[in-house]
Design a protein around this nucleic acid. Structure first.
Lengths: 331, 331
DNA sequence: CCTCATTATGCAACCGGTTGCAAATTTGGC
DNA sequence: GCCAAATTTGCAACCGGTTGCATAATGAGG
């Protein structure tokens, strides 16, 4: 049984209010009382019950962290950074694993039951409507890695996926590739849709033939399977893969057919997950500024705690090409 | 402002107790009242406040999930499985990221403040004393991926790291390697110490010369750096690396020197992280039965909720060699 | 239709804190 | 040393539920 406020009060010979006040920032307590209370508290090993205090203050310092990307290596880094940054600000992450669920109903109920102060949706595949549900329920919400909208209904922090698509196309064209293609993730994923858009915008303008196909998931196996299929007919000279894991799957497929990268086929990914830098993979890719996205997301969610009606904004961070070994060099 | 019990009671024309009881399993309510309450509740969109209820029942259904392995790819899978399984049982994971902290004090205070029902320490590097602190504080605790002890002071679920070391040594010897070596993670890590022990137990018995060295972290860069160092002098014929990521780093180092694996040097890892199976890595390794470890951990922590004094036990699961391409075949 | 055993219901106290308000104490100016 | 202003303190109500206990309603049996 943990020590309670009451016991500390008795031992210190003061009222319960006095104890409560010594533990609340900026409350009015004389230095003398504070000393007595602190002494009693440390002797008893008291630490205040956050849940009980949440009942009256309405603040739990709990932040719901929702994701459906538990298999994406990039998210190791994402979870690490999120949990660390939240902790540094005295907030605790309450994790919700969506797996394949796309209906916000359950998560909403759950997070409401635990009276979380705010919600971060960390997903590049969920629709803006998903996050919107939390806003409608009056919860501060930020969609990290989410889809950009010029008039967002919730805070969105991430990258400009359309621009990434353009960037990829320009990079391939600049290296002299002409028959190029887009290998996306699942069609439903918002990120895939946007990257595709930008890619074809540039190829069209450049008057270049470009084809497309879609893997069934953002996974190694799906990328490999799709690439094996593509290799049966005449493959393109270079592929922009919607994601690094997909790229590595494609890479494996190409090499297993005895072809070389970038000799026979070029490959560019997106994310710059840690493994992309491993020399045995050495993937040329577009880097997402994960750290900035996360810092900015937390900054926004914290800001909303004090200013719940805050106008939703979209914050996009620039991506950058990381040159490694899966594209031929510039001519 | 969320709907409260009181509002539902008023709308249904019953007492607050009646409402409370319709939402608690096995409480005495007539079917008629229940109907009325359910109607009112759904009209108002009521869902009970888990925190308020926790105050009297003493159950938050919160489970602290503590880890310091946020950069280990295996833990993507680990977090995925933990969060899913907990959710399926109506429990919520409250994440604590330890980074390099090894003192339980802070985590303990934090988790006590949130009155978590139980704690899972998921780490292969933390000492048993770390978890012991939670038990001393009367919290149900399970150490997953922890160090085996014949008389454990807390529940431990994991693998027999000593046996893994033996397994690795036997595997290398069976393939005709004679000059073999152990490449461990940080010396302080309990898992490294145990794997080392088993490894040398077998080499000693077999009368085989074996050497050892230690990377500064369980990371790609550390593995690569250490292997590069080893390659400057006469390297061994085959290495047992304390971890898959370390192995991949070693692999990269070897290949960068123009040597081939398994032609010139053999390599065996441990964990069977997802990337080990990627064909561009194709690492021979020892597989940890992650799923069983996690299921068993949750089972134990749940059991302790009802039976807090339960006697601590160690549950070890057998590992298995996954043959891929970094060891020469059996003669 | 009445009695007695069961089941349902409401009252009120409680969980561990917070906070508005009024009373008590301290401080400062002269 | 006195008085008003400022600060500190405790009381008591409240947050949103749960639960033991006494009472009311229901059902079974005769």
């Amino acid at each position: 049984m943990p020590v309670t406020l009451k016991e500390v009060a008795e031992r210190a010979g003061v009222s319960r209010s006095a104890v409560s006040r010594t533990f609340t920032e900026g409350a009015s307590v004389s230095i003398k009382t504070r000393r007595k209370v602190e002494k009693a508290a440390s002797e008893l090993g008291y630490s205040p019950n956050a849940l009980a205090s949440a009942m009256t203050t309405g603040r739990t310092k709990l932040i719901g962290l929702i994701s459906n990307n538990f298999r994406n290596p990039l998210f190791l880094e994402v979870f690490d950074l999120f949990t660390r940054s939240l902790q540094e600000r005295g907030l605790r992450p309450l994790l919700v694993n969506l797996t394949d669920e796309t209906d916000p109903e359950n998560s909403l109920r759950l997070l409401r039951q635990y009276s979380v102060d705010g919600v971060i949706v960390a997903s590049s595949t969920l629709s803006p409507e998903f996050s919107k549900a939390f806003r409608d329920a009056q919860m501060p919400v930020v969609h990290s890695f989410g889809r950009f909208a010029s008039a967002p209904r919730v805070h969105v922090v991430g990258i400009d996926n359309v621009e990434c698509g353009r960037m990829a196309a320009r990079t391939l064209i600049a290296r002299g590739y002409r028959r190029i293609a887009f290998l996306g993730g699942p069609r439903e994923a918002t990120s895939t849709a946007d990257r595709r858009l930008g890619f074809f915008e540039v190829t069209r303008e450049a008057g270049i033939e470009a084809t497309e196909s879609f893997a069934t998931a953002y996974s190694f196996d799906a990328g490999r399977a799709e690439m094996l299929r593509l290799l049966q007919h005449e493959p393109a000279e270079a592929y922009f893969c919607g994601d690094d894991v997909l790229s590595v799957g494609g890479l494996a497929a190409i090499q297993s057919r005895g072809l070389s990268v970038p000799g026979d086929i070029g490959l560019i990914g997106l994310n710059d997950m840690e493994m992309a830098g491993w020399q045995n993979i050495n993937l040329t890719t577009i880097r997402q500024p994960v750290r900035q996205i996360i810092d900015s997301s937390i900054e926004l969610v914290v800001a909303m705690l004090d200013e719940p009606g805050r106008y939703p904004e979209a914050r996009l961070f620039p991506c950058e090409i990381i040159e490694r070994g899966t594209l031929r060099p510039l001519p």
